[in-house]
Amino acid sequence: MGQTITEKIFSDHIGKTVYAGEIVDSPIDMVIGNDITTPLSIKAYEQSGAQKLANPDGFCIVMDHFIPTKDIASANQARISRDFAKKHQLKHYFDEKDMGIEHALLPEKGLVVSGDVIIGADSHTCTHGALGAFSTGMGSTDLAYAMITG
């Protein structure tokens, strides 16, 4: 029997043929954070004692929900992500001058392509499946785990 696109993507990523029902440990091509959920991920990341992102080029933060900020709480959320991006010299950090809706911006920038494995702490992350990628939303602590392990 042939494979689904998801089975093909994971088979390619882990180097062996897989089928539905199997549990796989796959490398992730892109971990996507935004200004709402990433501060929670950063907190979990820092509480773990991690010092370095496992795949800094495969991690991005897009400030697309609270920017421009509407109040002090929103500004503080943004500051947490900005400080983290600066500390880790993130190559893929999109803020006020270079931002957009994360699920449209990343394909436009060529950061999400067919065949990728993508996770994000946003329920709309699965929209990248329209590009032929495996893409799903997860929780903020899942994102932190991916930041730590790749």
Rank of each mutant, 00 (worst) to 15 (best):
H92E: 04
G132P: 07
L53C: 08
H65D: 13
I72Y: 09
Y19G: 10
L106D: 01
D25G: 01
R82L: 14
M147Y: 06
K16I: 07
H92T: 05
D83T: 14
D116V: 05
G132F: 10
S135A: 15
H65K: 14
S11I: 08
H92K: 04
L131Q: 03
S114F: 00
S140Y: 07
D142R: 03
M30I: 12
D35L: 08
M147N: 05
A73C: 02
C60N: 05
N34P: 04
C126T: 10
A133T: 09
V117Y: 01
K97C: 09
T136E: 13
E46W: 05
K86G: 01
D12L: 12
T4I: 07
I80E: 14
R79C: 08
G49H: 05
D64Q: 07
T149V: 13
S41W: 02
M63G: 04
S41Q: 06
K109V: 06
T149P: 00
T127F: 12
I101A: 11
G2C: 00
Y45K: 06
T38Q: 08
F134A: 11
N76M: 15
F66A: 12
G58D: 04
I23F: 05
I119L: 14
V112R: 01
Q89P: 00
D116E: 05
I9Y: 01
A44Y: 01
I23T: 13
K86I: 13
A20T: 12
D64G: 12
H92D: 07
T141K: 11
K52Y: 09
T125E: 02
A85R: 03
E7A: 07
D116W: 03
V62Y: 01
A54V: 02
I28L: 05
A50T: 01
F134N: 07
A133L: 09
I5L: 15
N34V: 08
D71V: 08
I14N: 01
Q89V: 11
S41H: 04
L143M: 14
M99C: 14
Q89D: 15
D122C: 13
G58M: 08
T38F: 06
I101Y: 04
Q51R: 15
C60F: 07
M99Y: 13
G100H: 04
R79T: 14
Q47F: 10
H124N: 13
D116R: 05
D71R: 08
E102A: 15
A75Y: 09
G100P: 00
L106T: 01
D12I: 00
L111H: 03
Q51F: 02
T4E: 02
C126Y: 15
T6Q: 08
D142N: 13
D35N: 07
I148M: 14
R79V: 10
T4W: 02
D64E: 12
I23Y: 04
P56N: 11
C60I: 10
G115N: 08
C60L: 10
E7V: 07
A75Q: 14
D25W: 04
D83C: 10
